[in-house]
């Protein structure tokens, strides 16, 4: 069946264990909310299938103060990919779309499309998040879905261009076919190494300038 996706939602703050959470859904439902796990409360995305949680991602980059004062951050080493049947989806929650690492890690772990669930309800903030999602889409060569509470819910093509977008404050349910891609873009291939290469080039340049400077000084001292 199709995957039903709802946003990271303030309507669904499940303050109980995931055992009970599963009872809420009998369909293929992907939804975000704050979820307790033992004594810790996370901001999570869960995949519910036939009343069971079959995949879960705990938000790694919590919003400073608002979230990190009361929630537990997900482990940075967990993967942010969820498997749905044969499909691997890369997920991020709310402003995690600002972090390049989120989409790079997902794609390195086989993500065929990206999915960002948000609960942001101000027009400028959702517009900004959508822009970040477009960048994540373009750099990874994946179609990205942005799912919001109040507006800007949208799909990009694999080059980051917004294909369609839901109007602000509209209540909509839309059936779509999401194209799935594999393979790595140059940005994904080289982004990890690029910073090391730039540091190496900078160090080599500094050493060479220092060397030349010392050499010239030695020449001048010799002439003088």
């Amino acid at each position: 069946g199709a995957l039903n996706v709802l946003p990271e939602s303030s309507l669904f703050n499940y303050d109980f264990d995931t055992d009970h959470l599963g009872l809420l859904a009998h369909d293929n439902l992907l939804i975000g909310g704050t979820i307790r796990s033992q004594s810790l409360v996370y901001n999570s995305v869960v995949l519910l299938q036939k009343g069971r949680v079959t995949a879960r991602y705990n938000k790694i980059f919590l919003v400073p103060i608002e979230e990190d004062a009361r929630l537990q951050a997900g482990n940075e080493r967990q993967t942010n990919t969820l498997r749905f049947g044969d499909v691997i989806l890369g997920v991020g929650i709310c402003y995690e779309s600002s972090f390049e690492r989120i989409s790079l890690k997902a794609v390195h772990n086989g993500a065929q499309a990206l999915l960002f669930l948000s609960n942001t309800q101000s027009p400028p903030a959702t517009a900004l998040q959508l822009r970040s999602v477009q960048v994540r889409s373009a750099e990874t060569g994946r179609v990205a879905l942005f799912v919001g509470m109040a507006g800007n819910t949208s799909m990009t093509d694999a080059k980051g261009k917004v294909v369609w977008r839901m109007p602000w404050a509209s209540s909509e349910r839309r059936a779509i076919s999401v194209p799935l891609y594999s393979g790595l873009t140059n940005a994904v291939h080289f982004s990890a190494q690029l910073s090391y290469i730039l540091v190496a080039v900078t160090c080599a340049t500094l050493v060479s300038l220092l060397w030349k400077g010392l050499h010239r000084k030695a020449e001048r001292d010799h002439q003088g």
Partner: peptide, 18 residues
């Protein structure tokens, strides 16, 4: 990147401005 297939998705936007 290569196109490998499609995933059918129902997207829901609640339309709530809080």
């Amino acid at each position: 990147p290569r196109l490998e297939g499609y995933l059918e998705v129902n997207l829901v936007q609640p339309g709530i401005v809080g």
